[in-house]
Design a protein around this nucleic acid. Structure first.
Lengths: 236, 236
DNA sequence: GCGTAAAGTCTACAGCGTAGAGAAGGTGCC
DNA sequence: GGCACCTTCTCTACGCTGTAGACTTTACGC
């Protein structure tokens, strides 16, 4: 009897009590492995050894479940609150988000589109926390609140744009990448797309990390210069 | 008899010959009006007074139909090929795309996510044409091809990011906007989100156009400076 | 041991994308 | 005119989807 009590937290193959966390984790796993479309209630139920309907205890609908998945992913973001320079701080966050996106490419479509259906203030808190954090960081660094907002917008805009860009450029592993890429480009009418075709080799070796970093550098220093930025505390 | 022959191109309520253009136009209309989810084969068939299956003559699948819709939207982009400065040229294109996005907000999710499932070279030509155009523009302006690619990436990244940002910020018309926005912000735990809540008023009057323009300005001039840019032909 | 609330299940329904076979319609040749 | 042909369109059917509502099982406090 004492044995059948309750396994504390181990993941036994079948029948442990469900919980929102468990459900979302399984959902994320499924999305990572097979894409958003594979996440159906029936399939997820099967994955958990439960009736599909039991999931509705932990997510009000499939849409809510998807929101939960994005929230779970955003929770992977590690928060640093050191006192380094605001620019490097933003850079670090950006790279962090980039890595999360690369770790869960199938979630990125959700990341960028789900918010579109929810007015800003009504989003999951996890989605707003970075915003608040960054605003705080910038204001703390000396920006006027309104300017902080501008900086944030440019920053996040660029960041999300970059992530979309990067995910579009490679999909397969770098080995066959080049071949496939070339194959694709080869299809293009030479007359209409001379530039693109000529850039094939350059396209093949793409380094998202440095590309992001450089773009951010330009943008941030530009912003700092234009807005009567933070009192520039030189590196004493 | 002569009457029932064939109406040449007018849109009679029911039975004119279908065509890919007609189908895609109807699809776009539906998406604009009711969102992506409303675009089902059955519904679209009904809208056209046809059996759903007839649509498969003009789009191989629902996914292909969605691709067709995005292509249709991108075709709205007007192409300028004047000889003005490359920066203002890029600016103009950006504003153009922004307006298209605002005109078809429901299509934006498709615009940003569909390419994720298609390797670069295999995308619809309409999606690649802007890339080619911009590369050409930049190289013509004096950039080295590889640098042109960097500029393009930063530019498009920022542009798409901005569009996503902007669409997230307003959804409703500006009148009730403020109220709803405030309502949303009000919900936020005051302790955790002081900055965001304080910015309510500022958030309410947002001008996407100038926001885009300024961000672009910063980015482009930064790029021009960093890369051994185009031979700077000063404004004689 | 029992009562109660929570957790999980079953059944059912309307709607989905689309395969495959067939009907209707237009067009050209004799 | 009549016939053949090819394109366009329709019908039927299948397996899948999300989820409402009623039911059964389980866990837990007293």
């Amino acid at each position: 009897m004492a044995l059948t009590r309750k396994a504390p937290k181990a993941p036994p193959p079948r029948k442990a009590r469900l919980s929102r966390e468990v459900v979302l984790a399984a959902a994320l796993e499924l999305v990572d492995a097979e894409g958003v479309d594979a996440l159906t209630m029936r399939r997820l139920g099967q994955e958990l050894g439960r009736d599909p309907m039991s999931l509705y205890r932990y997510a009000a609908s499939r849409a809510a479940l998807l929101d939960g998945v994005t929230e779970t992913v955003l929770d992977e973001l590690t928060v640093f609150a050191d006192d380094v320079d605001w620019q490097t701080q933003l850079r670090r966050m950006a790279h962090d988000l980039r890595l999360v996106a690369l770790r869960h490419p199938n979630v990125v479509p959700l990341l960028v589109t789900r918010p579109l259906s929810t007015p800003l203030g009504l989003r999951p808190l996890a989605a707003l926390r970075p915003l608040e954090q960054i605003l705080d960081l910038l204001i703390e660094a000396g920006f006027a609140p309104a300017d902080a907002l501008h900086v944030y917008r440019a920053y996040y805009g660029f960041l999300y744009g970059h992530i979309l860009n990067e995910l579009q450029e490679f999909i397969v592993d770098p080995d066959e990448n080049e071949a496939i890429l070339r194959l694709g480009l080869h299809r293009l009418p030479a007359k209409e797309f001379p530039r693109l075709r000529a850039l094939g080799p350059v396209l093949a070796d793409y380094n998202g990390e440095t590309e992001l970093d450089q773009g951010l550098g330009i943008l941030l220093s530009g912003l700092a210069a234009q807005l009567s930025g933070p009192h520039p505390k030189p590196v004493a």
